[in-house]
Structures are given as structure tokens and as C-alpha cells.
Amino acid sequence: MRKEDLLFDKKNLRKRKIINTIMLSLCIIAAAMAVVPLIYIFFYTAGAGLTSLNFDFFTALPKPFGEDGGGMVNAIVGTVILIGLGGLFGIPIGILTGIYVSEYSGSLMSNVVKFITDVLSGIPSIVIGIFAYGLIVLPMQRFSALAGGFALGILMIPTVTRITEEMLKLVPQTLREASLALGISRWKTTLRITLRTASSGIITGVLLAIARAAGETAPLLFTSFGNSFWSTSLDQPMASIPVQIFNYAISPYDEWHRKAWAGAFVLISIVFIVNLIVRVVTRNKYSGSV
């Protein structure tokens, strides 16, 4: 049967309309199925986390099993330190690479760099952990915050690079040309004009990278390891929220599970808030540029 005949066949049309309805409903069901786990996980974590979240959680050290109370202050501080260490080199490298890829795009080298950035973002985080282990833990002969921070820094690079690149591409070309026409050198144009225009977007990229790094567990397991005591020295093992959650989660004690839920709630809140900020900032950005 030819296509023309198909289109005007009444009975066939009904069949096609039914298929249409079925497939469209399936799509809606699929969307619902994808959203349900999010809502479930979010509310479950909130429910289990809020009940065990208290002031102590943020101020007290972990207690051995059997003693009531205690918190995760060492893990919270640990996570902040680890992210700070990672950000110290991960963020600048990420931003500079993003500038390179965007401002010098078209050359073979920038394409290679772009590809490599994609590769880096695809490397499983546990492999980065092995890398940090071999590079820092082995020579030092012990687990250390330094190694953990290093691993997190590497993980931040591709996120920051990509967002920087995207945001710089939104800066109108005419702005750069205007600056160059005034006789301002290229690097100064990039630094003072382009980068400044895109700064709010880049900051959101950095926030996103930080939120991601805050939840990374796998690369920390055998780099910064974990620590149940207060420690801020960089050459010693250091606690972090995700690793602490992991250790508590696989333990058999209910009390520890409750602590872990509280930690999970803190993490999920960070992710949620950061994404919300990013959403608001980038929306203004897009509507401004159109």
C-alpha cells in the first residue's frame, strides 16, 4: 500500500491516533518514573536526616559506639579543608583552560585540550583516587589530606573548564573587538573585559564543581582515608562527610545509621541549594543575552 493511501484510510487513522495516544502517555509515564526516585530519595533523606540532625552534629566529635550524642564536626571541617586544597589548584587550572579553549578556539591545540578535558571528566573518580594514591600516598607512606585534596582538585578541573568555556562563549564578540580596537592587548582584554563580563557564570561553575567534589567518596577512600579524631594537619589522614557516611552506612549500628542520614541530608541540601543558585544566575544570563 502506498503512503498516500495510508494517510487517508479512516480505519487506519483511528489506529494511528490510538498509537499516538499510547506512545505520548508512555512518555509522560516515563517522565513521572524518572522524577519519582528523586522525590522519594529527597524526602526519605530529609525525613531520616532531620530527626537526627541537631546542634551536636555540627559541633561535636564522633563518639565511639555505645555512647550517645556526638557529631561530625571533624568530617565537616575535613570536607571544607579537602575542597579548599583541591580548589586551590583545580579552580585556577580549570578557569585558565576554559579561557584557552574558548578564546583560542579553532586551533588544533585547543581542540586537543577540549577532547582531553572530556576524557578527564569521563575518568571514573576511583581511578583518580588510584592516581593520587600512587603519586602522593606511596611516596609519603601514609594516607593524607594532601592526597585527598589533590584527587578532588583533579575532579574539579573538567567541570570548571566546561562552564568557563560556555560562559565565555556567551560574551558578545563585539565586546572583545571593541577592546582590541582601543589598542588594549589581548591578554588584558581577556582578563579585564571578557572574564569580568562572564564572571557570575564562572562563579556558578565553580560552585557546581565544589558541590560535586563535596559528595565525592570513591577517590577519598584510600587517599585522605578517614579519621575519627580532630585533625587539621595536611600530612595526616582526614575525615570527610561522604567517607564518614559510607563507614556509618555499612556499619550494623542504628545509631550510626542515623548519623549517616543526617550527613546525607546535609550533602543533599548543599547540592540542592547550589543547583538552585546556578539555575537562577544562568537564567538571568540567558534572558539578558537574548
Partner: peptide
């Protein structure tokens, strides 16, 4: 947006759940 957040939740929380 909800689905983007789903992508950003740390894997440890998925595991815990």
C-alpha cells in the same frame, strides 16, 4: 531542573538509599 538535580546527588546517597 528536578532531573538535573537528580544527576547531581552524590552517589554515596544513592548507595545509602
Amino acid at each position: 531542573f528536578l532531573i538535573e538535580i537528580l544527576a547531581a546527588i552524590p552517589s554515596i546517597i544513592y548507595g545509602f538509599w
